[in-house]
Design a protein around this nucleic acid. Structure first.
Lengths: 218, 218
DNA sequence: GTCTATACTTGGATAGAC
DNA sequence: GTCTATCCAAGTATAGAC
């Protein structure tokens, strides 16, 4: 469905040309979603930012919605890889929170999650878009659950925490924090929250290593 | 700014007439935001649902954005009052979580938070809308903080928990959960989360009543 | 593959009849 | 206060020249 139009030949013959404008359009779609939201992401606005003609949106992607999904795919792939690499190095809950905070800070600065937020909110207006967006969120939920499982491995918490539900909450919290940060341009509350989360994670680690009801071993 | 147009005479002379269509438009705006999102909430779509002419949107509210803000005010007032009444009866963290779960369940069923989510996401497209929406979120953050303060009063947790930050997170989580629920039509993960939260709150209560390092008092 | 031109639709907003 | 009619801007999408 997302592969109609010209053959998807990244670096086919020339560096510019077909693949070049495709990429330019995807990039412009990302920027437009961040700056003007779903309601402002028209074919004209995106093509204008990409420096090409409006008709190319339909030639390459068939519809504006498909271009927007391609934009979501692009940032998702980039960010998911980035998250995976960083989180793999985190073995404890506290380290996991630190890793998450570092990259989420990047996301807030760059507004990557905004692309997802705008598409979720805009999905109500376009028939069929909701399912496509939902399918693209799944990898994130799975990633969050896997990261939680890995961080909790070996801890008694592993059997107590329903990582599926927590992963859902983490994704929801990311979306909500991004919305609020983007709305008033204040990233401080979100960042302060990660500090708190680290402390809680550290506390949980300490509790997890305690024998069931004894005092602290020294 | 929201009071231009005709005099705001609720039940002035006739039950219908001016105030009647005003209310019908506000109600239709809420329904349209829930069904079709910000991008689908045009003057024509809303007026059509309200059963009146499209021009009345501009006569009564001056612009579509103003009508949307009036819709947000309407649901905010209604919901905030509902929350306040229910939460006032909750004295402990566990009871607070239960109260929040009960009303959030209502919100999920009715889609009230969707109105807020759509306006936040749509704010990027309309200059000046962001500030208006942000101002309308403030009461919610204050409410959440006050509820947390009240529930933690007398507990040693009161000095340990930065209720300002947590309130921010709670609001963000609500927004995110609503988005995800609305997207795939599955409310189960959000509701399961409240069960978990209640258990954590109960645990925190128990920890809070413990002496610093002793065993459980029976 | 890309651009220009164009057909068609929808939306915001106003003027004037009733 | 409400409706009809209308203007104009913006959006989607397609056809055809280059």
């Amino acid at each position: 469905m997302a592969k109609s139009g010209p053959a998807s030949t990244l670096r086919s013959s020339g560096t510019e040309g077909a693949a070049g404008t495709r990429l330019a359009l995807v990039d412009a779609a990302v920027e437009t979603l961040k700056a003007d939201g779903f309601a402002g992401a028209s074919a004209r606005a995106i093509a204008g930012r990409a420096g090409c003609n409006q008709g190319l949106v339909f030639y390459h992607f068939g519809s504006v919605a498909n271009l927007l999904l391609a934009a979501l795919d692009a940032v998702s792939a980039e960010r998911l890889e980035r998250y995976r690499a960083t989180v793999e190095a985190a073995a404890t809950p506290a380290a996991l929170v630190d890793a998450a905070a570092a990259i989420f800070r990047e996301d807030l600065e760059a507004g990557y999650v905004t692309v997802l937020v705008e598409l979720i909110a805009g999905a109500a207006a376009t028939p069929g878009l909701g399912e496509e967006v939902a399918a693209r969120i799944e990898p994130w939920k799975r990633f969050a659950r896997d990261a939680l499982d890995a961080a909790l491995a070996g801890s008694p918490l592993a059997t107590m925490v329903p990582t599926d539900d927590v992963a859902h909450a983490v994704v929801a919290l990311y979306l909500g924090l991004e919305m609020l940060s983007h709305l008033d341009g204040d990233r401080a509350p979100a960042l302060a929250l990660f500090d708190q989360a680290r402390q809680v994670a550290t506390l949980l680690q300490a509790l997890g290593t305690l024998p069931p009801s004894g005092p602290v071993p020294s």
